[in-house]
Amino acid sequence: HNGKLCKLKGIAPLQLGKCNITGWLLGNPECDSLLPARSWSYIVETPNSENGACYPGDLIDYEELREQLSSVSSLERFEIFPKESSWPNHTFNGVTVSCSHRGKSSFYRNLLWLTKKGDSYPKLTNSYVNNKGKEVLVLWGVHHPSSSDEQQSLYSNGNAYVSVASSNYNRRFTPEIAARPKVRDQHGRMNYYWTLLEPGDTIIFEATGNLIAPWYAFALSRGFESGIITSNASMHECNTKCQTPQGAINSNLPFQNIHPVTIGECPKYVRSTKLRMVTGLRNIPSIQYRGLFGAIAGFIEGGWTGMIDGWYGYHHQNEQGSGYAADQKSTQNAINGITNKVNSVIEKMNTQFTAVGKEFNNLEKRMENLNKKVDDGFLDIWTYNAELLVLLENERTLDFHDLNVKNLYEKVKSQLKNNAKEIGNGCFEFYHKCDNECMESVRNGTYDYPKYSEESKLNREKIDGVKLESMGVYQILAIYSTVASSLVLLVSLGAISFWMCSNGSLQCRICI
């Protein structure tokens, strides 16, 4: 991952900044910058967002509201009850120091605090018919004063009620008058409520006091790749198909172990950190130390980045220098085999997901714990399936590479015959000098055995068991695999060879 928040398929997220979902939807004055928000790819909250409900109280069923919003990608904020005409018999300019803005008392931008007009609070009834052709999110509140005197001074009615009804919602609220500790300079409380109004449905408000009335509502448009994440990451000019709280993932790998919460087309989250597919040879310690064997393909974004291909070729060293050249036929066979294998694994496992966190309130801790156990169970199954699949494929890959290298080895052996000696570690020792032209003939299969047989015969008789390297004779190393990324691999195959001279070296080696 890149540690950044990015656009998702070209669409920017909605960053709530210092506000949370509650503050944004109710219209906390400190969240005025969010009022123009219309569309987004996903919503970003920060872990310690401080601006929620400015007048103390709870947004009821907040967790369910977050779940609903996680599939919303755009909205239209509109005046559901026009301020100047909807409440002619009531005062609608209630403000509070708890919702101060720029040093002055204020109130929510989407709600109206209705109080008595003169000395009376006549029963009010108002309704709205949803003609938007889509779901409408309606929010309101109920004020709970701290004393009967406060109730009387604001609403005149000691036994007030609030009723809200639609086809799918029907509740009646009565204020709970009680002494409470002071929070944000208030002994009173406000509880906030919401409902989704279906197209064509009607919502009716009736009250004799204590109503925090809707002013603006939201017509919602769903987008199934949307979601809500909690993150401290910063926004950058970048684009992605998959976003996590820790950063964007741009990967076609089937798995990731970065974060379980994802938005967009994302690899499946697994616990494993070692889900690797081999593309090189079986481990040979001396070669492995030099980083030549054991190439791997990573299938977990965050564990290993991208696929690494092994390729086969020849390396030689003689009086004229040293050089490398790919054996294109065996390399292409290996590439085709690995590509098919990788595609097979991805096809089997690479279903892209959006995974969002589930919200539970403080009273639902047991449910949250149960949900976590269920999620953990599914996660263990996914991890096991992934590891088992790759384990089985790896064994076949190792066998496949062994065969490829063996074929190259036999190709060289059949040409050199007794003009060189096998020394048991995949290397041959020449009994004759071999210049670049000679080396090329070994690589392309045109090695002239009779041409060098007499010199080889004489050297075999002279050496008589002495280690060949100390006599200045020449080696050919018969097994060799270097490691390159897919891009470098293609470039390498396009070149005939490249040279690395070893000044004054008397050794001649050709490596497979």
Rank of each mutant, 00 (worst) to 15 (best):
G294Y: 10
E469R: 11
Y447F: 11
G303N: 13
G472Y: 09
Y409A: 03
L403N: 14
G302E: 09
Q475K: 01
E347C: 03
E422Q: 10
K268I: 13
L408A: 04
I338C: 11
T354W: 07
Q507I: 07
E319M: 10
W499D: 07
Y431L: 15
L370G: 08
E347Q: 15
N418W: 05
I476N: 10
N425W: 07
L370M: 12
K451M: 11
K433G: 11
L363C: 01
N385Y: 06
T240Y: 03
D376Y: 07
V466T: 11
S481R: 02
N283D: 11
S251G: 15
R276G: 07
S492Q: 06
V473E: 10
S344D: 02
P245H: 03
K268T: 12
I300V: 15
H316P: 00
A325L: 05
L490E: 00
K358L: 09
E422C: 06
G302T: 05
N419I: 06
M307Y: 00
K329S: 12
Y449I: 06
I512N: 04
C266F: 08
E455P: 06
Y409E: 07
G303R: 05
S272N: 04
I463N: 11
T262I: 10
K451A: 11
T305I: 15
I346M: 12
N232F: 10
P450M: 10
G504D: 02
S286C: 04
C508T: 05
T262Q: 09
G291R: 04
S485C: 10
K329H: 10
Y431K: 00
E265T: 14
E368T: 03
R290N: 00
D327V: 04
S251Q: 08
Y409D: 09
D376K: 07
C427F: 11
V342K: 00
E440R: 13
K372E: 10
V374F: 08
V342S: 00
F430I: 01
T354Q: 11
G313N: 10
V261H: 13
F360V: 03
F255C: 05
I249P: 01
E410A: 09
E301L: 09
S234A: 13
I335T: 03
I423W: 08
A334K: 06
K241N: 14
K411S: 10
K406D: 14
N336C: 05
L370T: 06
L416G: 07
I423G: 02
M307G: 01
F430S: 09
V374M: 11
N371K: 10
Y269T: 03
E469C: 03
N436R: 02
E410G: 07
